[in-house]
């Protein structure tokens, strides 16, 4: 079987398109590259959507954390503490165990029956955990940035008669984003890396559709040689990380476009690996 045929069979295998069965004998490097790359689709899916949704929740949480009203502030503080204070590994496990406890038949609310069985599938359940997790981490970053906005900027805004929501929308929020962006980039990188835990600990793989690490595990299990598939995963993740850095760097340049060259903030990696 040529490498091109392998590619057409397995390039989309992780989302259920292509050959039904995984290769079983005579494993080639081509198969390993194709299938593990196919699994990367899931890592990108989880990472991108969790970041997108998490961004909005993180903003809300950061605002709640600087609120004076303790009924708004305390819940946000607890949410951030629980999700930042415990390992993602355990969050996945607990989330899955709790989701399977939901009634099979669905939940009745106001006469409407909401089905719940889709929640236990990785595409939904794991996404929710990652979304809440990244929201907590990002909220902490945004909260720190909100607190470090130069006092002078806010005073200048008020001097120009910009107050209330207009002040927030035009001064505080853009400045917060600009200050937080380098750290937020790191958060994005490590969120993508932690997507490898989805099928590894918490959620079962359905029809042998899994992420990059799932297929690497499959090959390590079948070829009994861990020294080929895992470095392939590493290779793919280096590429993914470079793509994230490039994309976030573009946004960073956009956020800093009004500033003189020498004081623009540069993206530096601050580790936040496994949570």
């Amino acid at each position: 079987m040529s490498c091109w045929e392998t590619f057409t069979d397995y390039a989309l295998r992780s989302i259920g398109i292509g050959a039904k069965l995984l290769p079983k004998t005579d494993f080639t490097i081509c198969q390993q590259f194709t299938l593990i790359g196919s699994g990367l689709i899931w890592n990108v899916y989880f990472g991108a959507l969790a970041l997108l949704f998490g961004f909005f929740l993180a903003n809300a949480l950061a605002l709640a954390r600087i609120a004076h009203n303790p009924f708004i502030r305390k819940p946000a503080e607890w949410f951030v503490f629980v999700f930042r204070g415990s390992p993602l590994f355990i969050q996945f496990f607990l989330a899955y165990e709790m989701l399977v406890m939901l009634p099979r038949t669905g939940i009745e609310i106001f006469g409407l029956t909401l089905t719940s069985s889709w929640l236990t599938k990785a595409w939904a359940g794991a996404l929710i955990v990652l979304f809440l997790n990244t929201a907590a981490y990002s909220a902490e970053i945004f909260y720190g940035a909100l607190r470090s906005i130069p006092k002078g900027d806010l005073e200048a805004a008020e001097a120009y008669g910009i107050t209330g929501f207009a002040k927030f929308r035009r001064i505080q929020w853009p400045t917060m984003l600009r200050l937080a962006w380098p750290s937020y980039t790191n958060e994005a990188i490590f969120l993508f890396q932690s997507t490898t835990l989805v099928f590894f600990s918490g959620f079962p793989a359905l029809s042998q559709q899994g992420d990059a690490l799932y297929y690497a595990n499959y090959f390590a299990d079948k070829t009994f040689n861990p020294f080929i598939p895992y470095p392939i995963v590493a290779f793919y993740f280096v590429l993914l990380t470079l793509a994230v850095i490039w994309l976030f760097g573009r946004i960073n340049a956009h956020l800093n476009r009004h500033l003189p060259q020498n004081i623009r903030s540069r993206i530096r990696l601050r580790p936040q690996l496994i949570r």
């Binding site: 069965l21 995984l22 600990s201 079962p204 793989a205 359905l206 029809s207 042998q208």
Partner: peptide, 11 residues
């Protein structure tokens, strides 16, 4: 995996 059923895998 080879039968017609949908396989759900656990560690």
């Amino acid at each position: 995996a080879e039968s017609g059923a949908t396989l759900l895998e656990f560690p």
